[in-house]
Design a protein around this nucleic acid. Structure first.
Lengths: 147, 147
DNA sequence: TTGAAAATATTGAATATTCAACAATTGAAG
DNA sequence: CTTCAATTGTTGAATATTCAATATTTTCAA
């Protein structure tokens, strides 16, 4: 008795592919909005994390904004040039650098937040309240289960 | 009467962020498996799309594997060097190039498929059957609603 | 207390991606 | 038909990312 031949799964049915596709699409839309202020998505994330007013080390930041260290260092260099953020050496551990958001950064961050909120609202409209919160829940739990 | 102050949404609650995070994690795991054969995820996708044996134009491929044209061209150059795929000029429209998978490509693709299936099974175990299929359904519908 | 290992951030070279310009072909309007 | 705009794919320069090596500071064991 032959085992039923496994139909070769098309790529569009792989979870990894669906995630990549959805991520790409949503990110593209967000990028489009944020480009009104000429800011890449990653910089918005950085500003948002720093906008709690606390100092965050580079390692912490890299983790939070999903960038690896050297990439973050170079992006922060640009943001320092633009006076959106600034570095302070951690007095408690001088290996570390603490990043802070500047006043200019805060102003920009508020504008970006409202652009991002626009997008979320747009998604809620076309995709629905229920689906959105359910999707978020499932994504969180997937992320959890992957650690 | 003051409108209730909107608590500034932390970044971890944005759909765009959750998608990026989940995508990154799942992709990292897949990358790890495929690295056993020394092949990047994008090349696996290309092989998988081409493994239907039909010719696919560069534009079609770029769309399917989520790469933009110049990036795809250069990746295909590498794959042609590795004799995994080959180019044929489309006889019906000589602007187009049709890509085909080679025998060597097919052999590699089968190995990669089984590595990818391993991963999907691993996800099913830790994350659950029900959650996985529900997540896939929601992602598909999000992608649909974004077009 | 000293010295080796670990943690943290940055740098520079190698690699990859993207943008804009280009070349070739097709389609379609006049 | 002819010409001009649109489509398709590639190229080269500019930009960004990554990997490996480095410098600095801290931790901790002997």
């Amino acid at each position: 008795m032959a085992k039923p031949t496994k139909t070769n799964t098309p790529i569009t049915e792989h979870l990894a592919y669906l995630l990549a596709q959805a991520n790409r699409e949503i990110n593209r839309q967000l990028e489009l909005r944020l480009s009104k202020e000429g800011v890449p998505v990653e910089q918005w994330r950085i500003l948002k994390v720093l906008s709690d007013g606390n100092g965050h080390s580079m390692g912490e930041l890299a983790e939070a904004v999903l960038l690896n260290h050297p990439t973050l260092t170079k992006m922060i260099d640009r943001m320092v040039s633009d006076t959106l953020v600034y570095r302070v050496q951690d007095p408690n551990d001088r290996r570390k650098v603490l990043m802070f958001i500047s006043d200019r950064g805060k102003v920009l961050c508020r504008k970006l937040n409202s652009l991002a909120v626009d997008q979320e609202e747009h998604i809620l409209e076309s995709y629905g309240d229920k689906s959105t919160s359910e999707l978020k829940r499932l994504l969180e739990s997937l992320i959890d289960s992957s650690n």
